[in-house]
Design a protein around this nucleic acid. Structure first.
Lengths: 205, 205, 205, 205
DNA sequence: GATGAATGAGCGTTCATTCAT
DNA sequence: TATGAATGAACGCTCATTCAT
């Protein structure tokens, strides 16, 4: 996660941070609503009720803004889910709690996660290569792997490739979200419970 | 699937079809390489070694080209996987064959699948709404559901929500691909076999 | 008026003339319907049910086609009105007959006259200067002037500037047409009779 | 007539208005010089010594710019002619003053009137129908009709169709301008006086 | 004679970015 | 700090024209 300091080490003022947060929030809403390709700085500024130049003033460029959105959203998920998993001791409990907590967070932060996906799939570096990719998930993969390894080492789980399991687990979560976004009446919590059952059976000794 | 006829029922000439195929192939490569947002008609034309106007001549517009790419790639997957599944009778056999066949196809058509994902996530209708979404997968979901329902009815599989299973299965495949694209040395077949084991255990009675 | 020979003196074949006439007729209809700016060769060809290249084959370029349309339409008016004026001897009779005959022709050749106006106001030479202008009317002005001069010399008409009268007369006809095109239920013949009265009073001794 | 406020009620800044006026003036000159079809935004911008994007910045699109040109020119004519007609009481006086004032204005605003005609005859709506047509003149026709009706009611003029007279009067003015544009040495004031005589005789009781 | 394919210039428009105020 | 003005490049698209077949 980015520190709250600027590149030159200067701390940002309170008002500066507020403006940045406002712009990030506006970006989230515009991207979630209209998609990455239609989320021009002009629209983001208009949506925030500010002038276009303000964004350029507070962010080095559009790319930095997008990255800040990603960082902000990621941090929000991590904070929420980590707090929920506190106290769980069994691998199975951690697994189940993770899936349910993620679903809860999705319901509360639908726009944030839609925007996250848009940026994830669209943002490119100057050379055209994707700015984000599966590599970006490495951190998340490892966190999941630790749960699965715990289960394998304490006998809860059978032996399997923990990386494949982590990738699959992660993809299952992403698709649960995508499905719910398209069919909002879909029962997110039931879906999460089904996933917990699914992975519990897939991994148990 | 699109017929090989134009909207007005006129058959396209051989040379016309060849050009369209060439342009579609060029689009696949450019999108796979540089991403949807950087895949301008100018780049696609340049990559194909033709003038920009040729694309406009052969396709009604950029959107039609993109849709043709999607149709072409989808059809390629379906044809390949269907042929492989021919002759399988058990739900478990169908499941396992499906996962392995998809992985084989991925290895052979890497660019096609990268481009497919790019278009899927980025193409928008005039009103800004996504052109494709999870709904587009409905056909694929139902095909998977039929396998799972078969297993449930013949006693191979336990009872579970087949829609959630289909969505998860589909997501697992997508993420297998995404992971392999990022880490090309990743063992795709082993991943597919792990997935087969995973789902086999997750669903068995 | 253009001769029916090509620039190199070769006579055009019958079939060649038929094609040219067909293309000219199609151009008239497309221009009258959609306006000069939207009358691309593609549309004119499509409307005629022929390929775009045919037009380029039969005409040196779009400009020549447009000029042929103008010539054709002008000739049609002249032939019709001249025939009607045959036998009139008084200046006043010529005047009245001219106005009524033009109105009759307008009703019969609405599209031709609409197209004529469109080309007249829009066609430009390579240097951007108008291809047609008031100068093009010189021939028509002089024909009208001869009528007015006849009336002045035989005592029917008072003395006035015959050029101004001819220009005004011509403009009155143009506007009668434009008004009728916009309000098709407008009584064209009554309008022509009013004009005849108007000019009769304006010029009489 | 357009107010000086934007659609959302916000007043435009002084500098904004100055830029808009500059762009409108440049458009008038380019259209008058090169015709509507050759008056691309690129040319208008180049003529004004500004970048192409500036026009898009200050106007919603090319159509809005064209409409602003029309409004501006129309308003100029109306203001000038109205002021001249102030104080005239007889229908004949109003008639004569109108024709002479219009001629004066033409001489001073030649380019504006050329551009007006170009836009009038060429600008099209999205569906291809003309943006302006004789209907647009309805206001002017009615103003002329009021003069003629005044003359008929106070006994100055004979009975005639005031609509035909207004249309003819209007056309006479248009053609006077077109003639003078083509032959700049033509005596515009003499032409206007001839027209005044012409209509005076055409309508008098 | 006629066609469909291809070209390349120019179109209006959008956009991220820069900058004077 | 914040703004509105301006830039210039790139976009998708249309078009008159050329040409091999």
């Amino acid at each position: 996660m980015r520190s709250e300091n600027e590149a030159d080490g200067q701390k940002r003022s309170f008002i500066e941070e507020a403006r940045r947060a406002q712009i990030i929030a506006s970006a989230v809403e515009v991207i979630a609503e209209s998609g990455f390709a239609n989320a021009s700085l002009a629209r983001i500024a208009q949506h925030a009720g500010i002038s276009k130049g303000v964004i350029s003033y507070h962010f080095a460029g559009k790319d930095e803004l997008m990255e800040q959105v990603v960082d902000t959203v990621y941090q929000g998920i991590a904070d929420y889910v980590m707090a929920k998993m506190e106290g769980e001791t069994t691998a199975n409990g951690l697994l189940r709690t993770h899936l349910l907590a993620v679903a809860e967070h999705m319901r509360a932060q639908r726009n944030q996660l839609k925007a996250l996906g848009q940026i994830f799939y669209n943002l490119r570096k100057a050379d055209g290569a994707p700015r984000y990719s599966v590599e970006t998930n490495e951190h998340a993969f490892q966190a999941l792997e630790r749960i699965y390894l715990l289960g394998q080492s304490n006998g809860e789980f059978r032996q399997f490739d923990v990386r494949v399991m982590a990738v699959t687990h992660s993809g299952a979560v992403d698709n649960m979200f995508a499905y719910w976004v398209t069919y909002p009446e879909h029962d997110l919590d039931a879906h999460a419970r089904e996933l917990a059952d699914l992975f519990e059976r897939a991994v148990r000794a």
